[in-house]
């Protein structure tokens, strides 16, 4: 029997893994076994793969996580809405009801008027005659005026807010400036006091030096006189 080294012609990759995991067909088994008899390299590789598999099997899992899936029943959109409505506070329910009513009235084209006759409602669908073109024009003009008024009011409000902000800013700056001045004055006073202390210190030292000089001159004169006297004797 003569073994050969592995060559690119071996081309047994797929068949070999199938054989390794007992998934090879009869034909594949026959081919692989015949090849292993001749090819030393593939034979060694297959043995190595068996060893790798043995090592892989050493890694077994002991612990297990606690998996919890919240399996609450799926609810429909209306069920969710109903629950939301139940949980709502009374004021929210009332607001919702009024809003809904206004929407319905708006959809019906209802006109609300308060006059001498009191409060009255009239729905578009109940009126037989339609609004004339002049009415529509009047409404358009009124709307334009209303929108312009709203824009002007908004601009005025913005302007007022801006002015107030500027005033507040100016006040802040002034107070900051004042406090800076006070700090500066205190600092100057402090420096002046230090300078005075230093001046006093210098004066004292100069006085001491003068005394030393005078004192030392007197001592020298006395010593000289003593020396002269000794020489005369």
């Amino acid at each position: 029997m003569s073994y050969t080294d592995k060559t690119p012609n071996c081309n047994m990759h797929e068949a070999m893994v199938s054989y390794l995991y007992d998934e090879a067909s009869v034909e594949e088994c026959r081919q692989v076994e015949a090849h292993l008899v001749e090819c030393r390299s593939c034979k060694e590789e297959l043995e190595a793969f068996h060893r790798v598999r043995g090592m892989l099997q050493q890694w077994q899992i002991d612990d297990l996580p606690v998996v919890r899936v919240e399996t609450t029943a799926r609810r429909s959109f209306f069920e969710v809405l109903r629950e939301l409505f139940t949980l709502m506070p009374v004021w929210a329910k009332a607001t919702g009801a009024v809003a809904a009513l206004m929407l319905v009235l708006a959809a019906l084209g209802t006109e609300v008027s308060i006059g001498k006759q009191g409060f009255s409602l009239s729905a578009d669908i109940t009126r037989s005659n339609k609004r004339s073109a002049s009415d529509a024009e009047q409404i358009r003009v009124d709307l334009r005026v209303m929108v312009n008024d709203m824009i002007l009011a908004s601009e005025r409000q913005q302007k007022d807010e801006l002015t107030m902000k500027l005033v507040a800013l100016e006040s802040q700056l002034q107070s900051a400036h004042q406090s800076d001045l006070v700090r500066l004055a205190a600092s100057i006073e402090d420096q002046r006091a230090r300078i005075k202390t230093i001046e006093r210190d210098i004066d004292r030292r100069e006085g001491l030096n003068l005394a030393d000089i005078l004192f030392s001159e007197l001592t020298n004169d006395r010593d000289e006189r003593r020396t002269d006297k000794k020489i005369g004797d």
Partner: peptide, 19 residues
Amino acid sequence: KTRMYTGLSEMRKRLERLR
């Protein structure tokens, strides 16, 4: 199968010294 073969070959290389 190719990925399996390549993967085992790589594992063989990595675990050879341990063996």
